[in-house]
Computed example of a mutant assay.
Amino acid sequence: MATKTSDTKDNNTTSSTTTSTGAAIGTATSTSAKKTTAVDNATVKESDMKSSPLHKFFVSSLKDIYYAENAIIDALEKMQDAATTEELKEAFEDHQLQTKKHISRLEKVFKLIDETPEKKECEAIKGIIKEGEEVIKSTEEGSMTRDAALIIAAQKVEHYEIASYGGLAQLAITMGHDKAADLLERTLQEEEDTDYELTEIAETYINFDAEQED
Rank of each mutant, 00 (worst) to 15 (best):
Q98L: 13
H102G: 09
R105Y: 06
S104P: 04
A91D: 06
L88T: 02
A91I: 03
T85M: 03
F92G: 06
T85R: 05
A82C: 03
R105H: 11
A91W: 00
K108T: 14
E87C: 07
T84F: 04
S104H: 13
K108L: 08
T99S: 04
F110C: 05
Q96R: 14
D94A: 10
K89E: 00
E90Q: 14
E90N: 12
H102D: 14
Q98N: 15
Q80G: 04
E86A: 11
E87D: 15
T84C: 03
K101M: 13
K101F: 15
V109P: 06
K111R: 04
Q98W: 15
T85N: 06
K111I: 02
T84D: 04
M79H: 09
R105V: 04
H102K: 13
T84E: 09
E86T: 12
F92D: 01
S104I: 03
L88Q: 02
F110S: 01
M79D: 09
L106F: 08
T99N: 05
H95Q: 08
D94G: 06
S104M: 09
D94H: 10
F110D: 07
T84G: 03
D81I: 04
H95R: 11
Q98A: 15
L106I: 01
A82N: 01
I103N: 04
D94T: 11
D94L: 08
E93A: 07
E93T: 00
Q80N: 12
M79F: 13
A91V: 02
D94E: 14
A83L: 00
